[in-house]
């Protein structure tokens, strides 16, 4: 419906946006290329291609600096948190969306308060609570926090469950299925697209999270990749050839996930905030 032919203004916009997008390409490309340079090469040939491809930086950060451990930490924490988040938030959303009971609406609003007040605001009492239950410096504590921070996923699931026809539930009851069986064996399989959306969006958010690990995972052996990169940055000048390799390792998984699932991530984030 819009004009197919592009005028001068359109071309200027295309050129400006191309230049803008080049920033990301140059920064990421430069980082990856530089990660294969030796320190000497990096010093005298900062922006060019490496004279010889060296994987020494990767050997150093992955094995000698045991970044592989941070890598495993990040993967474990992210995967476990996503599974727990999807399970608990979908169950809660299911209870909220598919049953009629007194106070249902206020409860729904209550669960959405987390969208308004980010977890950072109450980090201090949260710290006291976590300490009381000996959950600081534990992955289980972090998984519980990421699960508790469920307002966004709960909202997505609630919207979805509300749209499902009630006949689905009724016929299952007639077939003699229990309530939990209906949720697990009928509702979950048809929720696959939503589960996927929640998983991909949460992957990006939890994998990149800086604040909660900074506060709750002080122990070095528990550090996530994001924290490990931060540690490298703090000693940047001494190790700057290593930072490129470490940052590349941290960025690659999330870029791959993004390039494959960009539609889910983008539409998921948009869907989570478009309705009033």
């Amino acid at each position: 419906m819009y004009k197919k032919k592009q005028g001068l203004g359109g071309w200027i916009a295309t050129i400006l946006l191309t230049l803008y997008c080049l920033i990301a390409v140059i920064l990421i490309g430069n980082m990856i290329i530089s990660s294969f340079k030796t320190k000497h090469d990096l010093l005298f040939n900062t922006f060019g291609f490496p004279k010889e491809f060296s994987i020494e930086n990767y050997q150093q950060v992955l094995i000698k600096d045991s970044l592989y451990r941070n890598f495993i930490n990040s993967i474990f924490l992210t995967v476990a948190s996503i599974l727990s988040l999807v399970f608990v938030s979908s169950m809660t959303a299911y209870g909220l969306a598919r049953y009629r009971f007194k106070g249902r609406q206020s409860l729904e609003v209550y669960f959405l308060l987390g969208l308004m007040f980010p977890i950072q605001i109450a980090i201090l009492p949260l710290f006291v609570i976590m300490r009381t239950f000996s959950l600081t410096n534990t992955f289980i504590g972090m998984i519980m926090l990421y699960t508790a921070n469920m307002s966004f996923s709960l909202f997505i699931f609630t919207q979805f469950f509300k749209e499902l026809p009630s006949a689905l539930h009724e016929s299952a009851i007639i077939d003699g299925a229990g309530e939990f069986t209906i949720y697990l064996q009928i509702m979950m399989p048809i929720s696959k697209p939503v589960i996927f959306t929640v998983m991909t969006v949460s992957f990006v958010q939890i994998w990149n999270d800086f604040y909660l690990p900074l506060v709750f995972l002080a122990k070095r052996s528990l550090h996530t990749l994001t924290l490990a990169i931060y540690q490298y940055l703090a000693n940047f000048l001494a190790y700057w050839n290593y930072v490129f390799a470490a940052a590349t390792l941290a960025l690659i998984p999330v870029i791959i996930v993004f390039l494959i699932f960009s539609d889910q991530i983008i539409s998921g984030l948009a869907a989570g905030s478009i309705k009033e």
């Binding site: 169950m91 409860l107 308060l113 987390g114 605001i121 201090l124 508790a148």
Partner: peptide, 17 residues
Amino acid sequence: FITPGFILYSLFMIVPL
């Protein structure tokens, strides 16, 4: 269905406020 989520969310998101 709601109780587990309610406890986690309340304990870590609302009670701290």
